[in-house]
């Protein structure tokens, strides 16, 4: 992938973001610009704060007692930490795919329409249409069209993970956050999810946390490398992987950290 066009508008901006878990300073002055319809990868050794940063973008960290956050996260220019922000609406705009597939113990259908129902959408025709559209978008329609009322937990893992993507497609978020979405999957399933991500990129802004350097290199347009709570380098992926500015990035990419 080429270095992204410089005129692209940043969809999401992080400025001076600091996060404390109690006394532990987990994010230190983090900043980044995430561009629209690009895949941005977050890399770095275990415990450096990638998941914490990702969860700050849809305010999932609010759920953890004792978390303090300062700084700015702007989506389309609007600070999501501004007082009076509707957190539920924010989370619906920033869909999240988790490390372990977590479909609800409901039918495939009920999983897909969950986000719509939560937002108050009713009407069988609307929901039916959303199910078909979302499952098609996640490449599950052919597998599941005859099994819409079967339990989601009975699906193979990779289909479960794609169902979690379909669940997001139904509510059409603006940004999709993925925290190591392939780490529970085998290589074939991983390839399928990667392919799906490249397809989704045409419509969505995607941020993915990954431990897999090849994955980051072949999938992402931009990459951020974190270390001990700091964003030590944020750049075009190709640039970062061929010619990192920071020595520590070089060390991490070439496997000198855990």
């Amino acid at each position: 992938m080429e270095h992204p066009a410089t005129h692209a508008i940043p969809r999401l901006q992080v400025r001076n973001l600091n996060l404390h878990y109690g006394h532990f300073h987990a994010l230190i002055n983090v900043g980044m610009d995430v561009e629209d319809r690009r895949i941005t990868a977050l890399i770095g050794p275990s415990g450096c704060g990638k998941s914490t940063l990702l969860r700050s973008l849809n305010r999932m960290n609010d759920l953890i007692p004792g978390v303090r956050i300062t700084g700015e996260v702007r989506i389309d220019g609007v600070d999501i930490y501004a007082p009076g922000t509707d957190v539920c609406a924010l989370r619906a705009r920033t869909g999240m795919v988790f490390q372990r597939p977590n479909p609800f113990p409901l039918s495939v259908y009920d999983n897909v329409v969950f986000g719509l129902r939560v937002a108050g959408v009713r009407g069988k025709e609307t929901l039916d249409a959303a199910v078909e559209r979302s499952l098609r978008a996640a490449w599950l329609w052919d597998n599941l069209k005859d099994n819409l009322y079967g339990s989601a937990l009975a699906l193979p893992l990779d289909q479960q993970q794609r169902l979690c993507v379909a669940r997001l497609m139904a509510i059409e978020p603006e940004v999709i956050l993925m925290d190591e979405p392939c780490s529970a999957l085998d290589p074939i399933a991983t390839a399928k999810i990667e392919e799906l991500m490249l397809e989704l990129k045409k419509q969505y802004t995607i941020i993915i946390v990954t431990h897999n350097m090849q994955q980051a290199a072949r999938m992402s347009d931009h990459a951020g490398c974190m270390l001990l709570g700091e964003m030590i380098e944020f750049d075009g992926t190709q640039r970062m992987f061929t010619n990192p500015r920071d020595e520590r990035t070089q060390d991490y990419i070439s496997g000198r950290y855990g």
Partner: peptide, 27 residues
Amino acid sequence: VPNSYREGALALGATRWQAVHMVVVKA
């Protein structure tokens, strides 16, 4: 009930109460 269900529901924009009665209680 695994916490991942609650997180999944909240991350889709559910309120606390929606997550509980639509997912947790069903699980």
